[in-house]
Design a protein around this nucleic acid. Structure first.
Lengths: 224, 224
DNA sequence: GCACGATGTAAACATATGTTTTACTCTTCT
DNA sequence: AGAAGAGTAAAACATATGTTTACATCGTGC
């Protein structure tokens, strides 16, 4: 392939990521993408077989670069304490979702992932198996190591979801958080602080859930 | 106004809530809504001055009914222990977002709110002031009561966001959660369990954050 | 040198969609 | 009874958008 080819295709991919991230699938027209990429509209169909194909390619590209640039495990890997591994895991999620070097910060592709969570596209299936599920299993392993017990997975999953939920909420709701409390809205400079806040909160939550698992689940009849 | 009028208008509002919730603003065409409501397309423009007007009306209606049917405070109000008030608060969020009697469960209007968090529409501004901000302040009050200290709000907000994030994540990502771990996906029967799981997790998290606030924030230099 | 395939471009096409127009119906008040 | 106005319906309108077609351009191998 000539050089120009890769260049054009890559330019489309890059521009599409931004446009899709900013406006969502429906509002991102191929004409707008073509304009941003300085490319003819037909080129999109030529290289990606239509808008859907382009979107699928963008989604895979976004996840691939995000997870390769911000892996969920540090170099030391399993040697570190499980608490520190969780810290790294959470921090990686924040950077992946929100850093300008990651998924483009609050105006970029992070919101693309958030939209996929709500309305998964057909292209999301493969991403789910390739990235999300292993990512979830990694988190479960960390949780087991922290709790030092191996509880019923059904009891562990909500714990994992609570952690993931915090991370993703910061990314998806950043616009609203900005309006409610500008100081706490994520930006390039406070990601570490926010991630550590989530980390500490989660450590406490994990401990509490573990207590509940060990203690006889006394049926506290505090219904109201 | 005649009876038939209110009926038609109400039918449009109801049908629009479902359609908007299921497919989002862009994919929800007024023709589909008109068909679902058994109404002529022109009636929508007649009663709501266009698609945007209809969407705004739906949004306000959804929040109004949701918060009135599932208020965030119980009848006992401030008399209950702050922990139980938090429990009620979280449970109300789950029911509001996910119950079939609330915002239509996982196929219904709950996702409409999730989408607003990502891409707020103009109509969301008023909802923000009317419902979301007071709701947030209520949560902050509860947190202060639980911690029994009044820390810097800047330290308290992340704590509140962690709690809200868990609740909203369950609602918005229910489709994906279903694919990852069907047992933990929210449904009409396990809302109480999930809400209590989030509640316990949050109590632990709050305690941990409080510890951190009281203790000298020893700069743990665990950067990696 | 030249034909051929890959790549890029401009225009045309078909369709979906929000809105408006126009006419009709039905209730209500005098 | 009749006028008036609100509510409803069908069709027309204007536009935006994904896709396709026909043609131009460029590099490459024979």
């Amino acid at each position: 392939m000539p050089d120009k080819t890769a260049s054009t295709k890559q330019r489309i991919l890059k521009a599409a990521g931004v446009i899709f991230g900013q406006m969502g699938f429906k509002d991102a027209t191929i004409r707008r993408i073509a304009e941003a990429a300085q490319v003819n509209v037909a080129a999109i169909n030529y290289h990606f077989q239509g808008k859907d194909g382009l979107y699928g390619a963008v989604l895979e590209d976004v996840f691939a670069t995000g997870f390769s640039r911000f892996p969920a495990t540090g170099e030391n890997g399993v040697d570190a304490s499980p608490e520190q591994r969780l810290r790294f895991f959470i921090r990686a999620m924040f950077y992946r979702l929100q850093s300008r070097d990651g998924w483009g910060g609050m105006a970029g592709q992070g919101r693309l992932i958030a939209r996929e969570l709500i309305d998964p596209s057909p292209a999301f299936e493969v991403v789910l198996d390739t990235y999300i599920k292993p990512h979830k299993d990694l988190l479960l392993d960390i949780l087991v190591d922290i709790m030092q017990i191996t509880p019923d997975p059904k009891k562990l999953i909500p714990c994992a979801l609570s952690i993931l939920g915090q991370c993703i909420y910061y990314a998806l709701a950043s616009t609203v958080i900005q309006k409610i409390s500008a100081d706490s809205a994520p930006n390039e400079d406070n990601l570490d602080q926010l991630a550590d806040s989530v980390w500490l909160f989660s450590l406490g939550g994990i401990a509490r859930i573990k207590d509940e698992l060990l203690a006889p689940p006394s049926p506290t009849k505090a219904d109201k």
